[in-house]
């Protein structure tokens, strides 16, 4: 064996090819089957996609690096489930490009944050976390309230999502900006179209409490309020157990 190596280490190309070979196997064996084994991701026909406003909020969540302190992956451990709710299913991040499971809980897990607090609580908390949680060490994000949400690229954002496999329809892509506006303006004409395209359960509200403008705060709160609510997870698990 060492004699063989004695020869190998005299050839740069041979050594390179051997390194590529040795280093490829692990990834091929572990990653490739995840795309082919059907049970890897549960089927969930009722799973809905993010609305344009929620997707914009998700982009803000990524831009601010929230994943550095908040996980979105509840493990199958009793204390995780008792603290944060039903453990996360693979299907729940099926449309997450990329996934935001995170690796550190400097703050709590927020995989099931949606609906847990009011919009008003979220707005106050984001403007200054210490106003609602005195010992919090989260940064303040007051400027989200002042910045108007960028809308001109929403259609191309959705189109890029479709290119990587999220089932947005042509109609959804064409109306992305109008839908984003409608979701945060329940009294506008655009509001009804949002529920029609994305489902009756969609949150249509003035998330930041200010109907005049569509701000980054609207988008981020809309995203936080949908976390964990893309499918009905308890119904999903009950169905799996009766099968």
């Amino acid at each position: 064996m060492f004699k063989l190596h004695y020869k190998l280490e005299r050839r740069a190309i041979g050594l390179t090819l051997a390194i590529i070979g040795a280093a490829s196997i692990g990834g091929i064996v572990e990653i490739a089957p995840l795309f082919t084994i059907a049970e890897t991701v549960e089927a969930a026909p009722d799973m809905r996609v993010y609305t344009p406003l929620e997707l914009a909020g998700r982009n803000i969540y990524m831009r601010e690096g929230c994943y550095a302190c908040h996980s979105q992956m509840i493990r199958t451990l009793k204390d995780d489930v008792d603290r944060y709710g039903h453990y996360s299913l693979a299907v729940e991040s099926k449309y997450d490009h990329p996934m935001l499971w995170g690796s550190k809980r400097t703050g709590p897990d927020i995989a099931r944050l949606g609906g847990k607090y009011s919009d008003e609580w979220h707005v106050r908390h984001l403007i200054n976390p210490r106003d609602v949680v005195p010992v919090s060490i989260m940064p303040a994000y007051g400027w989200l309230m002042e910045r108007t949400l960028r809308m001109d690229d929403l259609s191309s954002q959705l189109a890029a999502q479709r290119a990587v496999g999220v089932p947005y329809t042509g109609e959804m892509i064409a109306n992305a900006a109008a839908d984003a506006y409608g979701q945060a303006n329940p009294d506008s004409n655009a509001a009804a179209a949002v529920a029609e395209r994305y489902g009756e359960a969609t949150n249509v509200r003035t998330f930041d409490g200010d109907a005049q403008r569509l701000t980054e705060m609207d988008a981020l709160v809309a995203y936080l309020q949908i976390l964990g609510n893309l499918i009905d997870v308890n119904q999903k698990t009950a169905a799996a157990e009766t099968e």
């Binding site: 693979a90 490009h97 990587v164």
Partner: peptide
Amino acid sequence: HSLFSGVQ
């Protein structure tokens, strides 16, 4: 937007 999503 990254090519892969979720568990993969």
